[in-house]
Design a protein around this nucleic acid. Structure first.
Length: 428
RNA sequence: GUGGGUGUAGCUCAGCUGGUAGAGCCCCAGACUGUGGAUCUGGUGGUCGCGGGUUCGAUCCCCGUCACUCACCCCA
């Protein structure tokens, strides 16, 4: 019979790999906490309209990448393709901004997009991110970039490139878009086939083309940054100077484009040079019109989202050492059949304080030690006839008899000795 | 949705213009008659992705199909 396997674009995270995820999750939570962001967990599916309204019905995500399905009552639901829409919805639904200047939230969890999988891209993938809702101040744009940068830095990634740009606001962007369209039409014979097509539909995307043939036209194209209105220019200037003062390196990207429609003013991405085609570890920006579009009062906001698979991929290729739990394990085994029944109560007792494994079968000593060693034991406890206890240190091979009454003390001493020896080895 | 690459043991992979399969790792046992990680020896384990075709005979050649993978589009 044919066996089941993972659905295309999904992946089991098994022991051996999950430890990296735990480690990354821990870093995320620690840094988020220091920055004052509180966790929010929204449902993994929402009403389809929430996403089409917020992300933009002309985007690729909405047009062809959503997992949309009717429930049993015929309502159209969609597995969330990103996190911001859900958080914004929840913020409005629960009036979270009441009495607060700004609400700072973070999330972490799976997202779903129906795309052809490749390196760093899956149909179920995981993101973490923040949303700071309620303030138009550039301070929060900077803080958003800072918390993201800090997490990547704490995870040991680097060198990192922060790309910063601005997409203007509803006041200045339309004028620029038609200007750009005009320019591209005039030089359309220099553009690649793809760009000729998207020139009309989404001219900003052309600036993002990696095709060399388009390079000339793109380079001398008018930049949005030169056509921003006065308030947008001032806002960008403040983000830049604050980043500089804070010591966060960044590059001004004159052609930065993002895939969602709701952005206004600040947009940014953080890239790592060692990744392949999908070098963006994450990105974000300001979305001052989004909450109003969702039926709320005019409420500014800014946030980012980061791809956890991509971060882990980079960390693996850099061979970063992740802090694994290498607590020495205690392995309990009987060496006489009469002692076999004592294993379970002893293991229970030890497990109140330490990581412990036990076996009931009596095997010859060679086998016991081999299995203990392979299981990663730091200490082996051998149970003999008449309650005799032998404690063996696996790193040095030393062993001593010990009475049951003083077992915990002996184990504690051994653990200290083992830890001391380890740190000595590390230092030398 | 479009292209390229790859499907052989649990894992990583060999397999010569076609003669129905091998190595390393892992696991088990022994050498070491009660003291682990090393070494050596032996053993378990495979419908060669699936279906058709050519052939006396196909893991190898041809067609189809599925899966994985990389890239395009787009994005995290």
């Amino acid at each position: 019979m044919e066996r089941f396997r993972e659905v295309r674009g999904t992946k089991d995270l098994r022991p051996g790999e999950i430890e990296r995820w735990h480690y990354l999750e821990k870093i995320v939570r620690t840094v988020m906490d220091r920055y004052g962001y509180l966790e929010i967990r929204t449902p993994m599916f929402e009403s389809t309209e929430l996403f089409s309204r917020s992300i933009g019905s002309d985007t690729d995500i909405v047009q062809k990448e959503m997992y949309t399905f009717p429930d049993r009552k015929g309502r159209s639901l969609t597995l969330r393709p990103e996190g911001t829409a859900s958080v914004a919805r929840s913020y409005l639904q629960h009036n979270m901004g009441r009495g607060k200047a700004v609400t700072k939230l973070y999330y972490m969890g799976p997202m779903f997009r129906y795309e052809r999988p490749q390196k760093g891209r899956f149909r179920q993938f995981h993101q973490f991110g923040t949303e700071a809702i309620g303030s138009p101040a550039a301070w929060y744009d900077t803080e958003t970039i800072s918390v993201f940068y800090e997490i990547l830095d704490a995870a040991g990634l680097g060198p990192l490139t922060v790309r910063l740009g601005s997409v203007g606001d509803p006041g200045c962007r339309p004028a620029y878009t038609s200007l750009l369209k005009e320019y591209l039409r005039a030089r359309s014979d220099e553009l690649c086939g793809n760009c000729k097509e998207r020139m009309e539909k989404n001219p900003l995307r052309v600036l993002d083309c990696k095709n060399r043939s388009c390079g000339g036209a793109i380079e001398s194209a008018p930049s949005l940054l030169d056509h921003l209105c006065e308030p947008c220019t001032a806002h960008l200037g403040e983000v830049r100077s604050t980043l500089e003062k804070g010591g966060i390196p960044f590059e001004l990207d004159r052609s930065l484009v993002r895939g969602l429609d709701y952005y206004s003013r600040t947009v940014f991405e953080i890239h790592h040079d060692e990744l392949g085609a999908q070098s963006a570890l994450g990105g974000g920006g300001r979305y001052d019109g989004l909450l109003e579009d969702l039926g709320g009062p005019p409420t500014p906001g800014v946030g980012f989202s980061a791809g956890m698979e991509r971060i882990i991929t980079v960390a693996e290729s850099l061979e970063i050492e992740w802090d694994g739990g290498d607590e020495p394990m205690i392995y309990v085994a009987p060496v006489e059949e009469t002692a076999a029944g004592d294993v379970f109560p002893l293991v229970r007792r030890l497990r109140r304080r330490w990581k412990t494994e036990g076996v009931r079968e009596v095997r010859n000593l060679k086998t016991v030690l081999k299995r203990a060693s392979r299981a990663g034991a730091g200490i082996v406890l051998l149970l003999g006839a008449g309650g005799a206890l032998t404690v063996k240190r696996m790193d040095t091979g030393d062993e001593t008899g010990v009475s049951v009454d003083h077992l915990e003390e002996e184990v504690e001493d051994l653990r200290k000795a083992i830890a001391a020896r380890r740190s000595e080895e590390r230092d030398s």
